[in-house]
Amino acid sequence: TEDARKEAKKIIDNGGSPDEAAKFIKKYGLSEDQARELVKRAL
C-alpha cells in the first residue's frame, strides 16, 4: 500500500536499514517478500 511505502521511506530516510523497514511494514499485512519489494521501490 501507499502508506506502507511512505513508512518504509521514512524509516530509511531516518537512518534505518532496509531490513528494519521491511520488518516494520510487515505489520500492514504484507508477506516478507512483498515487504522487501516495497522497501526496494521506496529507495
Rank of each mutant, 00 (worst) to 15 (best):
K27M: 08
G16L: 07
K27D: 05
R36P: 03
I12K: 04
K9M: 14
E20P: 00
R36D: 07
E7C: 15
E7S: 07
F24Y: 13
P18Y: 10
L30H: 01
L43N: 05
K23A: 14
K10Q: 10
N14S: 13
F24E: 13
I25N: 01
G29N: 06
K27G: 06
G29L: 02
S17D: 08
K40R: 11
K10D: 07
R36Y: 12
A22Y: 13
T1A: 12
S17W: 06
E32A: 07
L38C: 01
R5E: 13
N14M: 12
L43M: 13
D3T: 12
I12Y: 05
K40W: 14
A4Q: 03
L30P: 00
I11P: 02
A21Q: 04
D13Y: 06
G29Q: 02
G29A: 01
Y28L: 07
A35K: 00
R41W: 15
K9E: 07
D13R: 11
E37Y: 01
K6W: 11
E7A: 14
E7G: 04
I11C: 10
A35D: 00
L43A: 07
D13T: 09
K40S: 10
K10R: 14
K10H: 10
L43G: 05
K23Q: 14
S31R: 00
R41C: 15
A35M: 07
S31K: 00
A22R: 07
S17F: 04
A42C: 12
I11Q: 03
S17I: 07
E32T: 04
E7W: 12
K23P: 01
K23M: 13
G16R: 05
K26E: 14
R41F: 12
P18I: 13
Y28G: 02
D19A: 11
I25D: 01
E2F: 11
K9S: 05
G29C: 13
D19S: 10
K9H: 08
K27Y: 06
D13I: 07
E37V: 02
T1P: 11
E37L: 08
S17H: 08
V39T: 01
L38Q: 04
D3C: 15
I25S: 02
K26V: 14
D19Q: 11
R36L: 10
K40L: 14
K23H: 11
R36V: 10
G16A: 05
D3I: 14
I12A: 02
Y28C: 13
K9D: 04
L38F: 07
R5G: 08
L30T: 00
A21L: 15
A42R: 01
E7P: 01
V39G: 00
